[in-house]
Design a protein around this nucleic acid. Sequence first.
DNA 1: AATCGTTCCTGATAGC
DNA 2: TGCTATCAGGAACGAT
Length: 272
Amino acid sequence: MPELPEVEAVAAVLREELPGEIIEKVTVRWPQWTGDQPPAAFGRGIRGKSIIQVARRGKYLRFWLDDQSQVWSHLRMTGRWLVDPKPAQYESHCSALLRFVSGRHLAFVDVRKFGRAHWYPPQILPKEERLLGPEPLDPAFDAQALHSRLAGRRRELKTLLLDQQCIAGLGNIYASEILFRARVSPMRRSDSLTLPEARRIHQAMVSILELAIEQRGTTVYDYRGAWNQEGGYQHFLQVYQKAGEPCPRCRKPIVRLVQGQRSTFYCPTCQR
DNA sequence: AATCGTTCCTGATAGC
DNA sequence: TGCTATCAGGAACGAT
């Protein structure tokens, strides 16, 4: 599933390939792709404009256009932005297709159709921006800041780490991996977290995300980058999807449990 | 106000 | 073989 490192990998390709491209044609093939915004309004918003820059914020991709308007897009579970796709890659499950004046194409392909995009006129603060917590890799977001953010709530740690208003960009894979490396139980109440534990979580978060970005993300089920490429971090996973396998630290079996309707993987012996 | 549960989607896979 | 049930899960939304 695309989380911060995967979205960063997509953004890296898009910001290399797209600046300067002028949008000539917009085809929205799945009307719900633009959510509350009518596809026609989305098309009017971006047609004829050129792409200035592409950035990532949390798990969102953000496209800046030459009139200062923006497109915010979320891949959700199976969404892919594909640059220069072959017809076989976008003829099925294609939510939207852009054609540039240059003749190149950019497709949003999404088997499960949860991915979304929205166009914002200039000077508008997108609602996504208001609803996102700090960036995990922002140097200003240090262990102290993480501690106060977590300890101010009383929820199970794992589900709180997934809350994008608390911290932007973590998803199910990295939340499990971070808590394993930090040796903190996913079931711990966030308000019981000590400062040393928060330091361990912060350290684990930074080093895991940095390596995962270097590896261009994790491909477990569906994730592909903008060149349709797989990530490499699946070879570094310690606990995710490894129920029953021996814990890398203590050799006792990794356990799967369900929190907030999704799987958590952890070691009951190492994580307290 | 904060937290919890449901919903949206489809393909792969397990089980009978 | 062919069918059905289950599972994967991010975030909006409604309920508590």
